Lab assay of single mutants.
Amino acid sequence: MQRVNMIMAESPGLITICLLGYLLSAECTVFLDHENANKILNRPKRYNSGKLEEFVQGNLERECMEEKCSFEEAREVFENTERTTEFWKQYVDGDQCESNPCLNGGSCKDDINSYECWCPFGFEGKNCELDVTCNIKNGRCEQFCKNSADNKVVCSCTEGYRLAENQKSCEPAVPFPCGRVSVSQTSKLTRAETVFPDVDYVNSTEAETILDNITQSTQSFNDFTRVVGGEDAKPGQFPWQVVLNGKVDAFCGGSIVNEKWIVTAAHCVETGVKITVVAGEHNIEETEHTEQKRNVIRIIPHHNYNAAINKYNHDIALLELDEPLVLNSYVTPICIADKEYTNIFLKFGSGYVSGWGRVFHKGRSALVLQYLRVPLVDRATCLRSTKFTIYNNMFCAGFHEGGRDSCQGDSGGPHVTEVEGTSFLTGIISWGEECAMKGKYGIYTKVSRYVNWIKEKTKLT
């Protein structure tokens, strides 16, 4: 034993070699072989497995989906700052455009905790909710729209109204504003409101030439003092309507412009014939205590009207009353817009006519005020429907199939267009061939041609 100890002390290297040989010859039971080890760690190889990531292109799944990435790591994937920024906006807080917040056709661009709407022409605001041009839906104005110097929408209202708090709607500024039905039992019968379409306001006024200088022999019209197929109006439903009495009662109609003036057809009036105007009328054979009678003290036909040349060209006249009318729910003026808007309103496509005229061709006159909704007829169809001249200051309205029309005794009465609950004068009943005849239409004086003249002559002093 002493000898062994001496050998170990003198030859430590020998001992180490012996131990190493023993270990190498022993069977290893701690580690699995290569094949079995792979069965336990069965993990798919990654895209760049075996390579240094710093030297390969980034992978979106590896960089940002398996674990949260930084902007720089995302930049490695896209290799483009702009594309990385677009991805980053949604990656950080989701897609803010998912709810489609942009209105009126706006395009949404996502941002971090926010979004941006790219608005089409005519709109602005956070969600493109603000109209900035009158060309689109009248700028959301209830009545009139004008573009300011910086191309912003400025709404306005006709006389007797003021802008509401929203700067879009119009509200009454006087007790009985024009064009409004205020009798409670008839307010439910107000005709369907007309909503502004998209309009090209630059070209809204037709490029028409008034044929002022045409000389033409007097034409022989049949029954051209021209509501057939209409309905009984309720008291106060058309408070701007008046009836004219002269040699015979209810020979023509008219509309209240203001307390002192009536507008009617020029062919209705004769110099030297006494005319009485009755406002607030409903049943011409009954006294309903809503009527107001006034005498006409002055007749002003349009300066281009000449019955000797043509009885229905420039067929418009103004009547001055001896005493002002007292405005109330049964006696209310009709609204008159400017030339541009009167023309736009007419193009809405349908209007209402009213009167006490004959209820059928050569038949009896109506006792109760009649009204009828009539569609506008395109000019080409209008011209083809008659052998008589249709001037540019006239328009056609009615039904091709016949059966409904204005008729004798309705002449001078109103053709009105309702705009968001307020009625505007767009025409004056003038003439036609018979009444409600198939293929024939009622012919009306186009008020847009005469609004400046009306307003100039009827100013209240």
Rank of each mutant, 00 (worst) to 15 (best):
T386L: 10
V183H: 08
T190S: 11
V377W: 03
C407S: 04
K387I: 05
P324M: 04
H314E: 04
V202T: 12
G229R: 11
Q185L: 08
K89M: 06
N48C: 05
D315W: 00
I256A: 00
A380L: 08
N245C: 03
V181N: 09
S220R: 05
F424C: 00
G421M: 05
I299N: 04
E10Y: 04
I309G: 10
G160S: 07
H314W: 08
G13M: 09
V56D: 05
V195I: 08
E433S: 12
N245W: 02
D95W: 07
Y441M: 10
D410L: 08
I316Y: 01
C102Q: 00
S255C: 07
K126R: 13
A192T: 11
H302W: 08
H267K: 05
A149S: 11
L41F: 11
L367G: 13
K39E: 13
A149W: 06
A317N: 00
K293V: 13
E54S: 11
G409C: 10
N113I: 08
R298S: 08
L244K: 01
G236I: 05
M394H: 14
P414E: 03
A192E: 11
F196E: 13
A337D: 01
N42V: 10
P172G: 07
P120C: 04
P235E: 07
Q167N: 07
F71D: 15
W88E: 15
K109E: 07
S217Q: 12
H282P: 06
W240G: 00
S25C: 15
R191T: 08
E401P: 11
L24W: 08
T342A: 06
Q143N: 00
K126I: 11
E171L: 12
C128D: 02
A308L: 12
W118G: 04
Y22K: 01
G105E: 07
T186G: 08
I443A: 05
G439P: 06
E165T: 10
K457D: 02
T29H: 10
K293P: 04
V4A: 11
I390P: 11
T271N: 06
K438W: 12
L52H: 15
E35C: 04
I443F: 07
S49L: 11
G351S: 06
H400C: 07
F71R: 14
L52M: 14
E72P: 14
V331N: 02
W356E: 02
S365K: 12
S169Y: 06
N42A: 11
N113Y: 07
G439A: 04
F399T: 13
S204N: 06
A436K: 14
K247N: 04
G50K: 09
L20Q: 02
P414I: 12
E193W: 12
R226A: 06
M8A: 14
N258V: 01
M394G: 04
E165S: 10
V359E: 06
P414T: 10
I284T: 12
Q185I: 10
C145Q: 03
G254A: 04
C396I: 02
S411A: 09
K457P: 01
V195Q: 11
C396W: 01
L41N: 15
K260G: 03
C435N: 04
M8H: 11
P239N: 00
N452H: 12
E259P: 08
T264Y: 00
A317V: 04
Q241T: 14
D110H: 15
H282I: 11
K247D: 03
Q167T: 09
A436T: 14
N151G: 12
K45A: 14
I284G: 08
E259Y: 03
C252G: 01
V227A: 13
I334P: 00
E456D: 14
E288I: 05
C396T: 00
N452R: 09
G402R: 14
